[in-house]
């Protein structure tokens, strides 16, 4: 591991939650403006998490914390592995294992809303996993390696070869970031502030852990978006920042302009888009490379 990579990993572990929280704040602000509201202060997500940590612990199931902590550790590990420049396929495998633990955290309570949310989380995994794996295949075909640091320092940006894969990935990013129309697992009820599917029975510290893990995960996912753009030249980093911010804005826009769909629509849409865009891109790439 080179010096840069060590610095990147340390930065990720230390600053990803700050960045993720900040993005969350921006998200709320922009969403509010789109809905003609003033919206909360930019740092509101941090206030929320700090408050959650200081609250009295009230839980439904004692073992939930096992699973949430495992989820937390595995997602942080995913991001750390990614920024350390290791194998991207392995990163995603660890991410899915982390997501499985989140599912367990929902299931373990044996309560109706939480279980329902967990079931939907599982469906979401089914919907996004093919696109995620295909992303790795795409990188491998384009750059001849699964290694993140080699992909990042290649001569040309991967997106030149992988436009279809990029579209599929951004599509499932909506699922992964829990944005409408695909926010099935954490929203389920009309009083969304109170009942949030999978997280219904998470309170205080547990919910704070969940929130921070989401921030870590979002930063990792946007990192993957950046990986499509980055190349050996340092100027490409400017493009990375622009594309990542644009993608993020796009997700907010989609979130605010679409109504939640049913699970089967989500599954069909995401698999359809994956097969259509990434599949065609894959065929072309296999022929030319």
């Amino acid at each position: 591991m080179s010096m840069t990579e060590i610095i990147l990993v340390v930065c990720y572990i230390l600053f990803a939650p700050l960045l993720g929280g900040l993005l969350d704040g921006i998200d709320r602000k922009i969403s509010a403006r789109m809905q003609r509201r003033v919206g909360p202060p930019l740092l509101q997500p941090f206030y929320d998490v700090v408050k959650l940590f200081s609250k009295q612990v009230i839980i439904v199931s004692r073992s939930q914390i096992f699973f949430l902590l495992s989820y937390f550790v595995l997602i942080v590990l995913t991001g750390a592995m990614f920024f350390a420049g290791t194998d991207i396929l392995l990163c995603f495998f660890v991410m899915s294992t982390g997501a499985t633990f989140l599912y367990f955290a929902g299931m373990v309570t044996s309560t109706p809303y939480s279980t329902m949310g967990a079931n939907r989380e599982l469906l979401q995994m089914l919907a996004y996993e093919p696109a995620v794996l295909l992303t790795c295949v795409g990188f491998y075909l384009a750059e001849g390696t699964f290694n993140v640091s080699e992909i990042a320092t290649s001569k040309y940006s991967a997106i030149l070869y992988l436009p279809g894969f990029f579209i599929a990935f951004v599509f499932i990013l909506t699922i992964k970031m829990r944005k409408s129309p695909f926010d099935l697992s954490t929203s389920h009820h009309m009083h969304q502030e109170l009942v949030k599917g999978l997280t219904t029975e998470m309170g205080a510290r547990n919910l704070a852990i969940f929130q921070v893990t989401e921030w870590y995960e979002n930063v990792f996912l946007l990192g993957v978006v950046g990986l499509y753009i980055v190349n050996a030249s340092y100027y490409s980093l400017i493009a990375v920042v622009l594309v990542v911010l644009f993608t993020f804005f796009l997700e907010i826009l989609i979130d605010n302009t679409s109504a939640r769909v049913k699970w089967d629509t989500m599954l069909k849409l995401s698999w359809g888009v994956t097969i259509f865009t990434a599949g065609i891109n894959l065929i072309i790439l296999m022929i030319i490379k």
């Binding site: 009295q56 612990v57 009230i58 439904v60 004692r62 096992f66 902590l69 109706p112 219904t200 029975e201």
Partner: peptide, 13 residues
């Protein structure tokens, strides 16, 4: 960690 934790139980929603 959770053994040392003090907590209150609540019923399911």
């Amino acid at each position: 960690y959770s053994r040392k934790m003090t907590f209150n139980r609540k019923g399911a929603y």
